[in-house]
């Protein structure tokens, strides 16, 4: 399908919670420099899929392969050190630290390891990148919602990830912020980063993604370009419910 090298593949990845199968034998590949959208109705298992990739949860079955190396079930820190970084659906910042220190956390222990002056300077560059340099010394408690999202993104970028996982990073933004947000992610895309984007905002999916995987009730129901999957009957049925199809 794509000629570029495959960076990440899921092979039958499965996760069960008691009787519930939140992720059910999912397969997909992500190529180098590709932006892949992971979409689906609420509760369809998107965040759980990201959790399996990032190592927040171990798969109950199947495998996840990063550049030929199996990472399914490795601890999160090991996966982070291989260059996979993520944001969280509910933003997670470090409350006792300044904005700069929050970002530095990503620079110090990630897959490139910096320390001291170098780490500070690098963190500062990342803050400039997301437009937050002015707030470097603030406490995170004082930030607005979008700013917390920016700081979290800066922390993730500070580790210079090879694969970036964004979980509804654009959710909850107002229209202007949304435009800024889309522009920011586009700039990451233009840098050639490999990104998996979990999103509900259709405009963003259309303008950012090369390809989409659609999930419903833990299963993959479609895969293809955004336009193709968004007009797929089964996808429409999954989003709207059976009656409307």
């Amino acid at each position: 399908m794509t000629t570029a090298a495959t960076v990440l593949s899921l092979r039958g990845a499965t996760r069960r919670f008691g009787g519930l199968t939140a992720v059910d034998e999912i397969d997909f590949d992500v190529a180098e420099h590709e932006v892949m959208g992971l979409i689906g109705p609420n509760g369809s298992g998107k965040s759980t899929t990201l959790n399996l990739i990032s190592g927040a949860l171990a798969p109950s079955g199947g495998d996840i392969v990063l550049r030929g190396q199996s990472i399914g079930g490795l601890p999160a820190q090991a996966i982070a050190r291989l260059g996979v970084a993520r944001t969280f659906q509910l933003v997670r910042l470090l409350p006792s630290m300044t904005v700069l220190e929050n970002v530095k956390a990503g620079a110090v222990f990630g897959h490139r390891r910096r320390w001291g002056w170098d780490a500070d300077a690098h963190a500062m560059r990342m803050l400039e990148r997301v437009g937050m340099a002015r707030a470097a010394r603030s406490r995170v408690g004082q930030l607005t919602y979008i700013d917390t999202k920016r700081v979290e993104l800066a922390r993730v970028l500070a580790s210079d990830p090879r694969v970036l996982l964004l979980d509804e990073w654009l959710a909850g933004l107002n229209p202007t912020e949304l435009q800024e947000g889309i522009a920011l992610i586009r700039s990451l895309r233009d840098e050639g980063r490999t990104i998996i984007l979990v999103e509900h905002v259709m405009d963003a999916i259309r303008s950012l993604c090369d390809r989409c995987v659609v999930m419903a009730s833990g299963r993959k129901i479609a895969e293809g370009t955004p336009d193709a999957v968004l007009s797929d009957r089964e996808v429409i049925r999954a989003y709207l419910g059976d009656d409307d199809a």
Partner: peptide, 12 residues
């Protein structure tokens, strides 16, 4: 502050 963030930042 947050053990989950720590692990995801690459801290053992």
């Amino acid at each position: 502050d947050d053990e989950e963030v720590a692990r995801h930042s690459g801290i053992d």
